[in-house]
Design a protein around this nucleic acid. Structure first.
Lengths: 299, 299
DNA sequence: CTGAATTCATGCGCGTTCTGCATGAATTAT
DNA sequence: ATAATTCATGCAGAACGCGCATGAATTCAG
């Protein structure tokens, strides 16, 4: 049985669509279809319910999914472990961070934890929240730094991953000022439609704002555009396109400069945690050393 | 990458010999050799030190081994989990026991734990200690029942497996009686060579006796034959071939009948625990229910 | 010191398996 | 009713892996 069958399966679980999954796995759809069949043959039970228009997991598939994720991660870790032992020890720390944090917060924070000299080579990948989750699950990175709203449903199963708070942030409604320095719009004012600059759904901030009741459907608010990149939204807001909820960490310079001003009073702010995730399973010595530094840090 | 490459690797680790490992894996040696190379290519570092006459693990190989074991077990568990969820739930309890225990002790004990009606179908495989360890490691069985001498080095890593005591036994030196009912030989008597019926090295009892100082090299004792099967040794002893250390659980009927008698006083007995091993990782609901019964049992 | 034996690696031919392309079947949307 | 989407199947070419035969290196015996 080919180990990449697990990757195929997990991709299919994400997409619930053979054609798209096949494309993501860089295969033709027939080949992909047969590979899923092959996996099912190996497991000796169907994992997928195929009804032409609706692809769903069977009970067996649902049971199998978390195991498959664990196996994929374990495969990756086993390889890294061996490489490290071989001395080819890429002393590289692989970590993912969401776009919003990788620009400003993460670099600063890494210096606090201990300069790069102590960390060794750093391989940081900046991507969406969704991708970061995936990278961590696949074992392609050892850590993932992102925003987290307390008590929101987790994307990462508690049983396999743990997190540690490393800071806090606020999502602040901001927009460009008019000539007199006052906000172009003001949330809560019963005025006309307010153009809203949102996050697209792959973004973690999207989920957080949704959970906070600040989503598309809100009255008096019209989503004007959305982007995965908080910094793109920041630029749009600066140009007077509308109101955006932006992380304070990202926007505080602009606020100080006066190029962005509050479009609502602080009671509307959304407090969020900044956290770092890791797998519960044992990582390489190098990564564990880093984690020790992280948790001994007082934030 | 083929998952059976892990099985190949682990077999090679056990044998440290390509030819024998290839045979065990039912392949020709060249094919096996290439498969190990393929694995090393996938991991991207050599795992094996080949010096024609001496096969050893590299540092990477040593680091890789426990991971490989975990992966193999997890693969097996993932499949069983899916099957159970599919309702094909072979409500079968897969357990291994050493030959010595599977005849007499295990059946009795299972009835104590709760009759087969409560356990469901039972699939017990009786084999050597070494094989039992392997079956458990590979996830082919969920439990393994064997003898255990307290404080002896474990074959099963504490980190991945736990055990629970389920009884105790003694290894008693026994032989056939002469016409007057007295033992043909007597350990400790400074008489001539005593023929000894030993266990071959695949047996767990072999290791226990070795650890107790009752091995080949002992003065006044000449190993006459050895077998993996305690019951074979029992038969040999009954036929007057020599002295054997036999589990009380196996031999007590013969002792009561007088067909076997002590060849040494009780101070020579070797006390052993009877234990059941299980993986620390979560098993199927069915197996966990069984485990609960096991640990709640007072022995 | 020499020849036999053991053990792992390599070359070659063959069969199996997998992929991509083209196409079919089933369902949904317009 | 027709078009579009989506998964399954038939077929041909390519790639991969196995067994067999053989080679190279080391060990052991006399």
């Amino acid at each position: 049985m080919d180990t990449t069958l697990f990757d195929d399966f997990l991709e299919l679980v994400r997409e619930l669509n053979f054609s798209r999954a096949a494309e993501n796995r860089k295969m033709t759809q027939p080949a992909f279809s047969r590979r899923i069949k092959q996996l099912e043959a190996a497991i000796q039970t169907p994992l997928i319910q195929r009804t032409t228009r609706q692809v769903t997991l069977t009970a067996a598939g649902r049971a199998f999914q978390p195991r498959a994720e664990a196996i994929v991660r374990m495969l990756s870790e086993a390889r890294l472990e061996a490489l490290e032992a071989a001395g080819l020890a890429q002393r590289t720390l692989n970590l993912a961070a969401t776009h919003a944090l990788s620009y400003t917060f993460v670099p600063k924070w890494l210096m606090q934890v201990g300069g790069p000299s102590q960390i060794g080579a750093l391989n940081m990948v900046s991507d969406t929240h969704r991708q970061g989750v995936r990278l961590l699950q696949n074992g392609e990175v050892s850590f993932f730094i992102c925003h987290k709203k307390p008590n929101i449903a987790e994307d990462l199963p508690e049983k396999q991953f743990r997190f540690h708070p490393i800071g806090s942030d606020r999502l602040v409604p901001l927009c460009a000022p008019d000539e007199s320095g006052r906000p172009l719009w003001r949330l809560g004012s019963a005025a006309s439609q307010i153009p809203f600059i949102a996050y697209s759904s792959a973004s973690g901030l999207h989920a957080i704002l949704e959970a906070h009741g600040i989503g598309d459907g809100r009255r008096g608010i019209e989503t004007k555009m959305n982007s995965v990149l908080a910094s793109t939204n920041l630029e749009m807001a600066k140009e007077g396109q509308g109101v955006a909820f932006l992380p304070l960490s990202l926007a505080e310079q602009e606020m100080a400069r006066g190029t962005l001003v509050r479009a609502g009073d602080p009671s509307l702010d959304v407090p969020v945690q900044l956290v770092i995730y890791r797998p519960r399973s044992r990582l390489s010595a190098h990564c564990e050393a880093f984690w020790l530094k992280v948790v001994s840090q007082d934030t």
